[in-house]
């Protein structure tokens, strides 16, 4: 049976063309490395502004206060509801207004106020791992707190502590 090569070639070309048309606008979350920057750890200290308890990813919006007093809200991506439920969290674990510390990795576009969360620490010291194993987030052991960019004004915090 002779196989005319142009036939499979045409087929592959058509399928690939259909796949590739969708170039720039689409962002694929579905590989940590293509969405978030493993070399840009961030530390967010602020209040929970909003929790989006939805599939496929939960989102926690954290409002931080910057040096000049301006407020900035970041959105941090957590695991799916199922992932968090298995760790003992639920929709009500993140009430608005709660002071939290979130560590994670910033989006590749550093202009975006978006990050992939690793841990959230609550006022009572409880720590919850928000990440999803299998999304490509870096080695759980590898988070370098020393390198993390703290996005709040820590000097201001120290002043407050002194006053108290």
């Amino acid at each position: 049976m002779r196989i005319a090569l142009w036939k499979p070639a045409l087929l592959v070309a058509v399928v690939l063309a259909v796949c590739i048309y969708d170039g720039a606008p689409a962002k694929a979350h579905h590989a940590f490395g293509s969405e978030f920057d493993a070399n840009a750890p961030v530390l967010l200290k602020g209040k929970i502004a909003k929790i989006e308890w939805i599939n496929p990813h939960t989102w926690i919006h954290v409002e931080i206060t910057k040096a000049d007093g301006a407020k900035e809200t970041w959105m941090v991506e957590g695991g799916s509801p199922n992932t968090l439920l298995r760790r003992g969290a639920n929709k009500n674990t993140f009430p608005e207004g709660t002071d939290v510390v979130v560590d994670g990795y910033q989006a590749r576009d550093h202009n975006e106020r978006r990050a992939n969360a690793r841990n959230v620490t609550f006022p009572d010291g409880r720590k919850l791992f928000l990440g999803m194993t299998g999304t490509g987030a870096p080695d759980p052991e590898a988070f370098d707190a020393g390198k993390a960019k703290t996005l709040n004004d820590t000097d201001k915090d120290k002043d407050k502590e002194k006053k108290q």
């Binding site: 209040k47 909003k50 409002e63 206060t65 407020k71 809200t73 970041w74 207004g97 978006r114």
Partner: peptide, 10 residues
């Protein structure tokens, strides 16, 4: 949205 649109908490 790249810039989340949330009413400030404080």
């Amino acid at each position: 949205p790249k810039i989340p649109d949330v009413t400030p908490v404080t």
